[in-house]
Every structure is written in C-alpha cells, then in structure tokens.
Design a protein around this nucleic acid. Structure first.
Lengths: 196, 196
DNA sequence: TCGAATGTCTAGCGGTGCTAGCAAGTTTTT
DNA sequence: AAAAACTTGCTAGCACCGCTAGACATTCGA
C-alpha cells in the first residue's frame, strides 16, 4: 500500500513544512548576518539540529535554497511596494513612493535583495512558468508606472523605469555612488521618468 | 647584497610581468568560457603551466585576481565608450551611443562585466585611493552626460544616468527583461534622461 | 668554490557541496 | 503477533576548493 496512516499523516506533513521553513529562516538569518558566503550546508544543518543530508530531502541543492529565499524576498518586496503606493499621492507621488520602498527594501535586507538579483538561482523571469511571486511583483510595478507612460508602451516603460530604479539601488548598495546624494539622486530619476 | 645582477634583472622583471599577464588572460578566458565559478587556482595553475603557489607570488588571493581582471575591464569599457562618443552627434546622440557601447560591452564580455560589478572585489569607488581605471571611466560618463544635465547638478545627474543605463543592462543580461524590446527600451530611457 | 638568496614544487590542512549505504523506526501485510 | 516493506535520519566519505608550510634545486655574490 502507498497510503500512510491518515491520522498521523497530517502532522507529519506539517512538521516537514515547518522544518523546511526553518531551513529557509536560518539561511536567510545567516546570510543577513554574515553574508551568503557564510551560508554552508554544515552550518545550516547545525542550526536546524539535523544532519546535512536532511537538507537535501527538502531542496535539490544549495542553489534551490537560495532560490526559495529569493521568492520569499519577492513576496515581501511586493508587499512593501503595495503598501507604499497609497494611490492618493498622484502618479508622481506613487512612483516616488515605490522607488523609495524598493530602495529601503534593499537597504534593510541586502542579503534578500542579493538572493533575488545577484546570486545564481534558477528563477525564471517573464516566462510562462515564472513563479507567482515574480509575476505579482511586476504587476505592482506595472500598475504604478503605467499612468506615467503617456504615449509610450506601458510594459516597455515599466521595464525601463524599474531597471533605472534598480540600477541606482544596486550601484548605491555596492558603494559605487555617493551616499550623501542618495535622496536627491532618486528624486531626480523619478522626475526624469515622469517627464519633469 | 640586495641588488641583483643588473644584466639579467631586466629580463627577469619582464618575464614576471608576462607571467602575471598570462594569469589574468587565462582567468579571463576561462571565466568568459565557463563562468567565474570554473576559475579555480588549480585550473589556472595548470593553464599557465606552473604550480598553484606561483599564483600567490603575483596575487594575494583569488579575489585579487578578479579585481585585476575587473580593472582591465574598466579600461576597455572606457575605451569603448570614448570611441562611441564621437562628439559630432550632439548631446543626445552621444548619450545614446555611450549607452549602446555600455550595453554591447556587457553583452560581449559578460564575465568581465560581472567581475566589475557583481563579483566580490576589493575595488574602491569614488574614494581618494580609487584606481585610475575607475576614475577614467567615470570621467567619460561625466563628459558625455553633463551637457544633458541642464540646471541639474552634473555629477548627480551623471550618477543618475549611469545607474539607469547600468540597471537596464544588468537586468537584461540576467534575463529579467524582454530581449526583443532591448533596443526600444534603451532609446526610451535615453529620451527620458535628456527630457524628451 | 662556497654560503646565501631566490624560485618553484610537492604535499597537505581545513573547508566546501553532495551522496552512498547503513541502522533504526514505522507502517502494512500476512 | 510476526514478518515484510517502507520511511527516515545518520555516519562516513568522495572530489573538489583556497591557501600555505617546508623541502629542493638553481642561481647569485663574495
């Protein structure tokens, strides 16, 4: 028989899910505290109080763990942007608010941001089997930026605006831009995007 | 005595410099062919036909090798942008030309681009002991973008424009943007930067 | 000619991601 | 209730990584 005991089945499944979540939580905490290079299978196993091979019963490999963390990050970024875009600040105000939310997300959770955009992952963007978290994130961007597109194609405009904001956040986070100009620089960008 | 034989000294020094250059060339070729993860000290040693410890007589560690390759990349990117900006296309034409040069540099030498912007290196941007290659690169950007700044601060505008272009190139390279819109998207950005 | 300095190599340390194979526990079948 | 089958987690170990100590040969200066 393939079927397990139905009374204990639910608990087992739940415990497995909890353990999976703990793996991700520890990976994320460790990455945020000491950088992704410090996130090793041995340390992770020690933190969840299981042996190394247990990790591989939840994830195919280390990259899959980073990918899962990145998806959590995408969901949180989406939520942060949704909250920032109140809707009653006008298109310009909304755009700036979302840009700032993006900026402060990267500043508060750099490891999460890194997992999403610079670590090697198996994330598929834009394709038909793109995960829901990524689709949702782009939808928020699309809803926010489209009103500013004017006669430009909304989707292309959104990609353009998003990547411009992203570039500024990324270079700033990497110490490539003057930190003291951070605020003015982002305002200047948003102004340019909406056409004065 | 500290001084070596002056007749052989020149040759030795030259041979050392050549070997150093070979290390960088092989690192770069390997990274471009199989990605930076495939660039290991063992493979590198094998390629230059010396043992591993020889690498450490030229570079403090692996990161220093990546850093050196990144500096080569910066010099080449600077040259490419200089060549693109002919100067007789007007400010808008120059800006677009430089943006396209940046774009095609990343597309043709992704590993070089990665070394410069996403690999962990000991590069110092903007500081007083920032290497000449990086200063030169920013100078070209400054010269190109300043004419479009109008009444905006030239330096802040340059950082803003550069990072916007950079962001688009980075997300495109990572498969986060629709490839078929690449050209239109970059034109749309440059138009927005110069204000219509 | 002989000691010193230099250059290079072999071997190895402690770490990495990942997996084979075993042992214990649990569930299903007889 | 006993046996068989399956599940679960562990120990141990593989091949690789960056990096270095110490031995060896060669070259150099006196």
């Amino acid at each position: 028989m393939i079927r397990n005991n139905p009374t204990t089945e639910g608990r087992k499944e739940r415990e497995r899910a909890e353990r999976r979540a703990r793996i991700l939580a520890e990976a994320r905490a460790l990455a945020e505290a000491e950088g992704w290079a410090a996130v090793t299978t041995r340390k992770l196993a020690q933190r969840i109080e299981y042996s190394q091979p247990v990790l591989y019963s939840h994830f195919a490999n280390m990259e899959a763990i980073v990918t899962a963390v990145a998806l959590e990050g995408a969901a949180e970024l989406t939520a942060a942007m949704r909250e920032a875009r109140t809707g009653d600040c006008g298109p310009f105000g909304d755009t700036l608010a979302v840009a700032r939310a993006y900026q402060s997300f990267a500043a508060t959770s750099p490891a999460l941001f890194e997992a999403m955009f610079t670590m090697p992952t198996s994330l598929e963007f834009g394709g038909p089997n793109s995960p829901q978290e990524l689709v949702d994130a782009f939808v928020v961007l699309l809803e926010t930026f489209s009103p500013m597109a004017g006669d430009r194609d909304p989707e292309t405009f959104t990609e353009m605006a998003w990547s411009a904001i992203h570039g500024q956040v990324v270079l700033d986070l990497g110490g490539r831009l003057r930190p003291q100009e951070r605020k003015r620089r982002m305002e200047m960008l948003v102004r340019a995007l909406v056409g004065e």
